[in-house]
Amino acid sequence: MTQKVALVTGAARGIGLATTALFIEQGWLVAMVDRDGDELKVAVKQFNQARPYEFDVSRPDDVDQMMEAVLADFGRVDAVVNNAGVADFRPLEQTSFADWRRIMETNLDGVFLVSQAATPALRKTKGALVNIASISGLRGSTLRVAYGTSKAAVIHLTKQQAAELGEHGIRANCVCPGPVRTKLAMAVHSPEIIAAYHDTIPLNRYGSERELAEVITFLCSEKASYVTGQVIAADGGFESTGVGLPALRS
């Protein structure tokens, strides 16, 4: 098989699903990985060039089985998008160790496990890793002691991967989304929260799942062949403004 293959985790919805769709538009085949089997079965029906794999990336045995199955079906992997993640926003004093570990297991351990399992295949294709972090990993914020810390760790893990795997022709980059107009975000963000985000983001709007997919697929493509070890905030300029008040920017 010579057609390029992307492995996308957290592919059943949101940014992962949008990335899957764009890869297919660009002529790739996609291994869609998600632990939500029911949602994954629904999502994969819209594609002819994708296959579903129901596994939990936080479990080492699941990851090993996943890689074995993907390579058996496709024979190669050219790009891995570590998108699977969970969020839990609560104050430090109300974050139990179980809450902390649940976030770390998926957001950080999952990226490590999938990247490690995929490295032999990526060495053969001189492929690309793209890890999805968050602007919460770039700047401090309330209620994100576990989530923000997990994403900051993913950013540094990406740099470690770039430094170590570059000699094998493997590129590793990180995308940090800002507020994205997903169904979940729109369901939980009040009009006041949406207005506050719009006031703080220089582009004055949320991003779309498609806009994030464009950045992700670019980093996996030959167009980014000399780009590695980079952390790209796709956030409408949110991170660049720090904690400055919108009224002071005009």
Rank of each mutant, 00 (worst) to 15 (best):
L40K: 00
T228M: 01
T106A: 07
A224F: 07
T228P: 01
F238Q: 07
P52W: 08
I132E: 03
G137M: 09
K151L: 07
I201H: 04
A133T: 03
Q230T: 15
P91R: 13
P52C: 11
R171E: 00
K45L: 11
Y53K: 03
G236S: 09
G85P: 06
S115Y: 05
Q3N: 09
E25A: 12
A69Q: 13
G10D: 02
P191W: 03
G127Y: 01
G14Q: 08
F238K: 06
R171D: 00
H168I: 00
P191M: 09
Y147S: 04
L108H: 03
D99E: 03
N107L: 07
M66Q: 12
F55Q: 06
A195Q: 15
A84S: 13
N107H: 08
G27K: 10
H189V: 01
T158M: 05
L248K: 12
T241M: 15
M67A: 04
I170W: 00
G244N: 11
H189E: 12
S240I: 10
A128E: 00
E25Q: 14
L143C: 06
R13E: 10
P246I: 12
A185F: 08
Q160A: 10
E25D: 15
V145M: 09
P177G: 11
E211P: 06
V77M: 14
R249G: 08
A87E: 08
V215C: 10
P191C: 10
S96K: 06
P120S: 10
R139S: 12
D88T: 05
N48M: 05
A172F: 05
N83R: 08
S58F: 06
I193N: 08
K4A: 11
R102E: 09
V188T: 14
Q230P: 02
E93L: 14
